[in-house]
């Protein structure tokens, strides 16, 4: 390791910023296969954090664990100051209303229209007049960049890109503070992906969101991520802004951030 290299491991916690997600000593194990081995991660308020890593390094598992879809073997997870693994039920339910999750293929309810999908969490958690809920849902659909006539359509009538936007609209339904995105640009054409990146960036600024994004898309990493966390060797190998990544002395990270596609993405960002 040369002198200029960024030290491996999650860089020393920045005490000046508010931590909204704090993961400590996380161990995930399926059968004999250990996915995460004492993983630590901090996510700060108002940042866009990109999670990268090779296939099978447990990026999606990490996301699922934080939002409570997967129970870890060991470790602690605090979201917005609440222990989401062992905290009191009522507090955990409160915190669940303060995040939104957009799954990779949308995971929209197929028997409901887009408008009904967006209204579903509102009906469950908010006591608002129906007309107001509908108007708010239409605003969320607009925020996600969908045309108004998409509201009446069923998920099966939408293209892949529109489904992702509809999922984003549903994730925004309760005005979350944290937005979890699983592979938001996977399967989109480059123009659509760039537009989606812009959308996330714009929303993040306007709504003051903290975005936790699992992605493979180097363009997204360059365009919108404030910080990147690299998963490798069953933990968070390194975190930091993308500029630091090229000087990390680890074969996978080096190949990922200095390969031909990374250089192309970097050039695109600069131009």
């Amino acid at each position: 390791m040369d002198g200029a290299a960024v030290p491996l491991g999650d860089t020393a916690p920045d005490t000046t910023r508010e931590v909204v997600i704090r993961v400590r000593d996380l161990v995930n194990q399926f059968g004999k296969q250990v996915v995460h081995d004492h993983l630590d991660l901090d996510v700060y308020r108002g940042e866009v954090l990109g999670i990268v890593g090779g296939s099978g390094t447990g990026k999606s598992v990490l996301l699922r664990t934080i939002v409570g879809l997967n129970r870890p073997k060991e470790g602690s997870i605090e979201v917005l100051g609440v222990d989401v693994l062992n905290g009191p039920e009522a507090e955990r339910l409160q915190v669940e209303r303060r995040w939104g999750v957009a799954f990779q293929d949308g995971a929209l309810f197929s028997s409901l229209t887009v408008l009904q999908n967006v209204m579903a969490p509102m009906r469950e958690h908010l006591k608002l007049p129906r007309a107001m809920m509908k108007a708010l849902a239409e605003v969320k659909i607009g925020l996600a960049g969908l045309p108004p006539n998409a509201a009446d359509k069923y998920p099966s009538e939408l293209s892949g890109g529109m489904r992702k936007r509809a999922a984003l609209a549903r994730a925004l339904a309760l005005d979350p503070e944290i937005l979890f995105l699983d592979e938001p640009t996977a399967g989109l054409d480059p123009i659509g992906a760039a537009a989606y990146d812009e959308l996330i960036r714009g929303l993040q600024r306007a709504l003051g969101l903290t975005v936790f994004m699992v992605t493979h898309d180097l363009d997204s990493l360059y365009a919108i991520c404030d910080r990147i966390a690299v998963l490798a060797e069953k933990r968070v190998l390194v975190t930091g802004p993308i500029e630091d990544m090229t000087s990390v002395d680890h074969p996978w990270v080096k190949e990922y951030f200095t390969g031909p596609r990374a250089r192309a993405a970097q050039a695109k960002k600069k131009s």
């Binding site: 408008l115 607009g142 509201a151 714009g202």
Partner: peptide, 21 residues
């Protein structure tokens, strides 16, 4: 400034016409 940005974003997102259901 953030409130202004939020107001602008939301204003832009309001659909022009009400949906007829």
């Amino acid at each position: 400034e953030t409130q202004q940005a939020l107001l602008k974003t939301v204003t832009d997102a309001i659909p022009d016409e009400e949906l007829v259901e």
